[in-house]
Design a protein around this nucleic acid. Sequence first.
DNA 1: CCTTCAGGTTAACGCCCGCTAACGCCACTG
DNA 2: CAGTGGCGTTAGCGGGCGTTAACCTGAAGG
Lengths: 201, 201
Amino acid sequence: MTTRTDAPTRREQILKEAARLFAERGFHGVGVDEIGAAVGISGPGLYRHFPGKDAMLAELLVGISERLLAGGRLRVTEDATSGDDSPEALLNALIEGHIDFALDDRPLITLHDRELDRLRDSDRKRVRQLQRQYVELWVEVVRALYPLLPESEARATVHAVFGLLNSTPHLGRPGALPGRTATAALLHRLARGAFEAAGGS
Amino acid sequence: MTTRTDAPTRREQILKEAARLFAERGFHGVGVDEIGAAVGISGPGLYRHFPGKDAMLAELLVGISERLLAGGRLRVTEDATSGDDSPEALLNALIEGHIDFALDDRPLITLHDRELDRLRDSDRKRVRQLQRQYVELWVEVVRALYPLLPESEARATVHAVFGLLNSTPHLGRPGALPGRTATAALLHRLARGAFEAAGGS
DNA sequence: CCTTCAGGTTAACGCCCGCTAACGCCACTG
DNA sequence: CAGTGGCGTTAGCGGGCGTTAACCTGAAGG
């Protein structure tokens, strides 16, 4: 876990604010002037950091997908080298990692499957490929845990559980749930319950 | 169950194609000329049927929310007047109805929580109110079935299950699953599993 | 038959918005 | 103390798009 303490660079500020705005009002719904204003500079100043508005979206989406996949792979290797390398422990780790991501980066979760088609072909292909690998990683773990579950059903179940875990943006902001840890625990239980229902045929 | 056999009116054609296009490329991503072309007329001809592009989106979103809520209420009354009026049967009916909707109207499902903020304030308030009532309807049934489940957790669970059921647009088009009935059955099992995990504390 | 009107058409306007051009200001660096 | 390059600024262009205007047509109705 490499934590950063230094101040965020201007590029990172821009990406963060752009992610928030894109998630709130859609890619086409926010103008470059708004993004600039959100970081204290004005419109065209953004072009010192990015070749265009599309490039910001591309970097965001590719970045999300890469981080998700990298996180998943990390947990797989961690599990393999740990004392208890059961599929169940691994699935729990995957769920937990995905929940952390969903709770920490809600705007990115929203963007992830909402604005994919605004990308250039090459970028879109890359994102789709990363997403597919991430799904396959889950599918393998699920099938290891529930060997009787057909692959097609396992894949559909994984997609459905992603929909479940990614529902966090819809949980009303204020005090819908006690706290973050309680929300995370609930989501974890729900996801496990869904997998159980799929696999315990 | 009132089934229609007569030909769809022009307004309905427009709404259907607009829903598809909005879902594919986002509200701002499709032009009026495209919508017109999709129904065989050209751009401004749409203004004989709708006061503006926004009005199409508004009618779509309000229509979805109303149909969802009406369907849910119908099943509640059906359950109350049936011989077996158990909460469990009712929850199954709600799930089944929602799945039917999700499988039959994927574009609308996609729009439902994606383009809400493009609406005029009054329309958005109306949609939000309908959504809230629909959620509350589910929450009551869930709490009847799992009395120990706190209300806040029940509500969050309902939202999460909606995310699960609404994941159908992400299940790759061709032959990801055998057929519609198999998909519906799987989603049903997953949803029940999630509720079980939430309520069986 | 003339009228009317629903439902189209094309032309064009006006705005919004992404992007470029041209320029200004420091903070370094030799 | 030049010079240079990173990082902004404002002005303005150009294209896309929602919308309106003006006109057309064919079918219904008295």
